[in-house]
Amino acid sequence: MTRSTRESFLARLHKPLGRPSTIINIPDPPEVDESIARLVAKDADLFAIFCDKAAATGMTIHQVTEQTLHESITARLREENVNTLSVCMADSQAMTHAVAQAGMQVQDWKALPGKAGLDRQFELDAGITDVHAAIAETGSLIYQSDAEHSRGMSLIVPWHIAIVKKSQIMADLIDFWNDRSSLDAQGMPASIAIITGPSKTADIEGVLITGVHGPAMVDVFVVEDQ
């Protein structure tokens, strides 16, 4: 079988488009008219809207200050009898210390490379992460992969605990994507996850069940930092 190439594949498109080769100059695509598509204004009470919408998705919201954050998290971990967990944050030292002090076993997710590291993530009771942004419109968390952020920690663990700073809350999905649209392909994070609630399904007779493949519980600690 002769295989399609980029050229032969594109040629298949040129025929129905009615041109001999790929068009070089095209009109600008339609603008995203914000008077239609924007659902939350930039100057709205983003904190209140985010907490409200995030809670509606089934995530548990805790409003804390920088002073009460560690204490609130360890209390919540004890409540759920957590034994092992990992911390996945841009600056994880203080949190790791606080959780270890409270008697929980903190696993270093970076210590084991490749497959072994992934396997370890499957055995954890919980994962604590910060986020890269949050969206008031939908109550979503935005979590990107990078050197300090494992994909598994907001996905493989049965319980995802996310820390959102109040200043990270953006009004609308539009704002987040406008913000990211100047990056080139290499500059884009390899993985951006927009997370909106615990894992859900309604495949069996439409009955809503939380916790299928992803985390069954998501706790969000919103920190007043302004």
């Binding site: 590291g117 109550g139 996850a193 909106t196």
Partner: peptide, 21 residues
């Protein structure tokens, strides 16, 4: 519902400095 629970935007395989992916 306002949005699906997980929207995953992927750009290339894991970068060399990343631990998983």
């Amino acid at each position: 519902s306002p949005i699906t629970v997980y929207n995953h935007i992927m750009t290339g395989p894991k970068r060399s400095h990343e631990a998983d992916g």
